[in-house]
Design a protein around this nucleic acid. Structure first.
Lengths: 201, 201
DNA sequence: TGTACATCAGTGAACGCGCGTTCACTGATGTAC
DNA sequence: TGTACATCAGTGAACGCGCGTTCACTGATGTAC
């Protein structure tokens, strides 16, 4: 193969960690099968020796967990950015945030699946909870601004989260189903679950 | 090990297929990781030689697909049975059917996940569609009986399916989350998505 | 300024393992004559 | 009734492969004296 990879400068060994996570993420994005994301495959992708991975992570599981944590962080950042960017009323912003959630899941199906995909997260993990917090806040603002009737925001947000997650995963796993337009379906779900006055969006 | 397995009678070779599917299903139920369900592991579990699997299935993928199809069939049968058993009005029966869906997913998390779990189904597969058909019918009856306002039953059922699937998978993957009571949450979701008059249930 | 040494980033060979799949086979049971 | 043969259910050894992980190592760069 091409010439040797240039090694990181002294004290910059930790930079390898980022390269490994990037390679893991790329691999995860390319294959629907997480069992294909092996230490050796990641090392090949990153252009390093398999053993070098052990300089940054104790084992394969830790490597994968770090990649998933990063995916969660990206998801939360994506939503937060969409909400911040939003200029409209609380209902419009809630819709923008949830749409960003769905867009992330559609653009990164493997990341989304690996993060939320069924296998119970380790007990202490708060992964995904910061994204959820944004959702609760969005619902709360709708109620405060009288765009939705009084209700328990945490509870309503839970229902919305359930619907979002269902939407994200079912659309991905059943592409042949006659789905309605994404925006229309999202709007309908929010309208019914939050009881948004249709003035929004 | 104990004495030899008794071989099937002449002409009954196909009985092995059932034993293999049973072993596959058991294994799937025990491990959260489908990649652990190998031909060799299934053969060990069934008490046969790995090569014997090839008498019934062309390869591992076909074996797994057959097990998933069976899981889908069991899901549909479970729901159908719950609806048939139901004595109440259309709303109550819709709630009974959807509750059965959730109960199946909770009792067979690995089967549910393998069946619906993110990886797109092969295009021609109608798996899961018979369960969905029951749902559409249930919604239709609610509208016909004036328990819900006029609406597109297919569309409403799609939203309910989304919520059911989200509920089933998120509850499984986030056991630490402060979920509301399952029946109460399901009731609330149906009430809002189908706009059921609360007379039901 | 030179030199010995410690530190650090990263490597390469080797281990034992479970896997999917292939191939030639065994041995019981039914059937044709 | 006996016997040769076909059929069928299922086996066992072997293949080549990719895996996670371990271990002893290389060689560049900075530091102490």
């Amino acid at each position: 193969m091409s010439g040797r990879r240039e090694r990181n400068a002294r004290g910059e060994g930790g930079a390898l960690r980022g390269e490994i996570l990037q390679a893991t993420s790329d691999l995860l994005a390319e294959t629907p099968d997480p069992s294909a994301v092996s230490i050796r495959a990641v090392a090949r992708r990153a252009g390093i020796a398999p053993t070098s991975v052990y300089l940054q992570f104790p084992d394969r599981e830790a490597m994968l967990a770090a990649a998933v944590d990063e995916a969660f962080a990206r998801l939360a950042a994506t939503i937060r950015a969409a909400v911040s960017r939003c200029q409209g009323d609380a209902g419009t912003c809630l819709e923008a945030g949830t749409a960003a959630y769905l867009a992330f899941a559609e653009a990164n199906p493997s990341h989304y699946r690996t993060a939320f995909g069924g296998v119970p997260r380790q007990p202490g993990s708060t992964a995904g909870m910061d994204a959820f917090a944004i959702l609760v806040e969005g619902v709360q603002r709708c109620i405060a601004d009288d765009l939705a009737p009084p209700d328990d925001p945490f509870r309503v947000a839970t229902n919305v989260w359930v619907a979002l997650h269902g939407l994200a995963t079912l659309r991905a796993s059943h592409p042949g189903f006659p789905w309605p337009e994404p925006e229309a379906q999202l709007h309908e779900l929010l309208e019914r679950l939050v009881k948004l006055r249709s003035g929004a969006a």
